[in-house]
Every structure is written in structure tokens, then in C-alpha cells.
């Protein structure tokens, strides 16, 4: 189960071309204060950490401050299901208690 979720996150997030089109629609980006609080950041944090590794405090804040509002999903040219990547990544982190 975990393995298939990991593989899914990797392939979904792995399609990110880093264009940043998702950032201007994200409500948490500006109040957050850095790129980790936007969808491009979250997707790539998930991608970079999905294989494990202890998430830092900033990583946790980034992943848990997402509203799951779906604004980013609508504008992503690679059609990544960003909301699900973030939610599933939360589930994986919690389950494996890597923190």
C-alpha cells in the first residue's frame, strides 16, 4: 500500500515542469513567506522527500498549511493532481512517522 502510494506520488509529482503557473492562484503563498507555501514548492517537497528522510519544521509547515482548495489543480499545464499529491504525502508521512 505504502509502496504504491509512494510510486504514485513520485510519478504524479515527477511530471512537474517547474513553470510556477500554479503559484499566483495559491492563497497561502504570500502569507507563508516563501516558495514552500505554494503548490510548486509542495509538489517538489513531496517529490524530494517521498523516499523518506526526516522532514524539517519548514517542510511540515509547508505540507500542513495547504488548504486543499484545488485552485492550483485547475491551472497546472501538466495536469498534476496537486491536491492529492499533498494529501497523500501527509498520509505517508504520518504512517511512516519519519519525523
Amino acid at each position: 500500500m505504502d509502496k504504491s502510494l509512494r510510486v504514485w506520488v513520485e510519478s504524479e509529482a515527477g511530471r512537474c515542469v517547474y513553470c510556477g503557473f500554479c503559484e499566483p492562484v495559491c492563497p497561502t503563498l504570500y502569507p507563508g513567506g516563501h516558495r514552500g507555501y505554494g503548490p510548486r514548492g509542495r509538489v517538489n517537497i513531496a517529490l524530494n522527500l517521498v523516499e523518506g528522510g526526516k522532514p524539517t519544521e519548514e517542510v511540515l509547515k509547508s505540507i500542513y498549511s495547504c488548504l486543499l482548495c484545488g485552485a492550483c489543480n485547475l491551472v497546472c499545464p501538466a495536469k498534476i493532481d496537486i491536491v492529492s499529491v499533498i494529501r497523500v504525502f501527509r498520509a505517508l508521512m504520518w504512517r511512516t512517522k519519519t519525523y
Partner: peptide, 12 residues
């Protein structure tokens, strides 16, 4: 934080 800094070190 290296995980955040890394987000700034990549481009399309």
C-alpha cells in the same frame, strides 16, 4: 532549511 533552499535552485 536545505529542503526549502533547494526549491529556489531549480528552473523550468
Amino acid at each position: 532549511d536545505p529542503d526549502i533552499v533547494r526549491l529556489y535552485a531549480r528552473e523550468p
